[in-house]
Nucleic acid binder design. Structure first.
Lengths: 209, 209
DNA sequence: AGCTTACATGCCGAAAGTTGGAATGCAGCC
DNA sequence: GGCTGCATTCCAACTTTCGGCATGTAAGCT
């Protein structure tokens, strides 16, 4: 059976299998044998390719971070050289791309977040990711706002994105991308001065009484 | 040695020990013996009081939910019969109360969130909590906004709260309550029509250029 | 004195991570 | 063509540890 040049193929298959196990059983059920079984191979194979269990998990986390980076980049390309508002929207769009709102992705994110609290390596990866998002947002806001306000707006929008995502994950139902985008866009409009106050205030319409 | 009436004391000690283990080792390191050791007792004791491991974890989660409920309630009491803005602020304040922003609490929340994805019982508890927050917010917003807008504002504020919290947890540094409160209050002001647009826009001050 | 509560200890079955060996096939060199 | 080395894969141990339970014992209550 053994063929040569299987390394990259097996790597990907095992990482994919890991996400599948996380999706329907949780990180605590990611064992060498559950992953191997899911991938249709035998237990020892994981150690062969990734050294040990941590190696597998780290590879999986890098994959998920890369996917997000690519999703954001993909949306940003189309907004290149546009207004801050458009570029901010693109960043938001990337964060809510289908690849990021699938049940598998959301469960994996939550699992890795949780794990990163006690794993320095995970923490490093995750913080680098956080900072990139924040600094991207801050740069765009900074084109129209004072630095202090831009930083606040970036922190707020980053939190709003993560919060919408988190609540979407925990809600159990399918992720409502439309609502997430709408609320995020509203947030952007309310912080950028170029958008007229009265116009942006679609959600501050007074109650008829 | 055995004294009578230890049950409630031991219950609490074991739950506290559980949080301590979660805080500095993560949920995956919560074992019957690690908890018992942390509490200064012997291994079999957990089964004695909680039946099994799941019983302990469920009791711990109920505790954390109760703590949040009480923190929110405590702040809301002082805002009783006040304006929606004041009451919304009180809810936010409760969510960022010290008991909720301690490293132990934040790590535990994240761990339970993650676990709730694959544990129906945890999911039930957690969703009930989510809905209470959302409906409280929606009620207050609903006093000044049309229903549709109130629901959006509630979803947004809930997400912002959770997101600020999540990012605070993952940041590794001490939680910046002041910033979290400020950003949440800004969000409230920007959605309530009663606050003047120009006044609320402290964070939309245009860049000097 | 007997019953209940409170706790420790020890054992067992299950499962996990890791390692080493063996079997199998591919590629290049003589 | 055959030998050798390397990559690939499975299988079978081995060690550790976890959760659960049964047993034993000490302290109070009535």
């Amino acid at each position: 059976m053994p063929k040569v040049g299987m390394q990259p193929v097996r790597h990907q298959q095992l990482i994919d299998a890991t996400f599948r196990v996380i999706e329907d059983s949780g990180l605590s059920d990611v064992t060498l044998s559950s992953v191997a079984t899911e991938a249709g191979m035998s237990a020892g194979i994981v150690s062969h390719y990734f050294g040990n269990k941590d190696g597998l998990l780290e590879a999986a986390m890098r994959q998920i971070l890369r996917d997000l980076r690519e999703a954001v980049l993909f949306h940003c390309i189309h907004a290149r050289d546009q207004s801050p508002r458009t570029q901010l929207r693109a960043i938001v769009h990337g964060n809510f791309a289908p690849s990021q709102t699938s049940p598998a992705a959301m469960r994996s994110w939550l699992a890795f977040w949780s794990a990163s609290l006690n794993n320095p390596q995970f923490k490093r990866l995750q913080r680098a990711n956080d900072r990139r998002l924040h600094s991207n947002l801050a740069y765009q806001f900074g084109r129209e706002l004072e630095r202090k306000n831009a930083l606040d707006a970036a922190t707020g929008l980053a939190a709003l994105i993560d919060g919408l995502w988190l609540r979407g994950t925990l809600a159990g139902e399918a992720f409502d991308s439309e609502q997430a985008l709408r609320l995020s866009f509203d947030f952007i409009d309310q912080h950028l001065p170029s958008s007229n106050c009265a116009l942006s205030a679609s959600s501050t319409k007074r109650k008829k009484s």
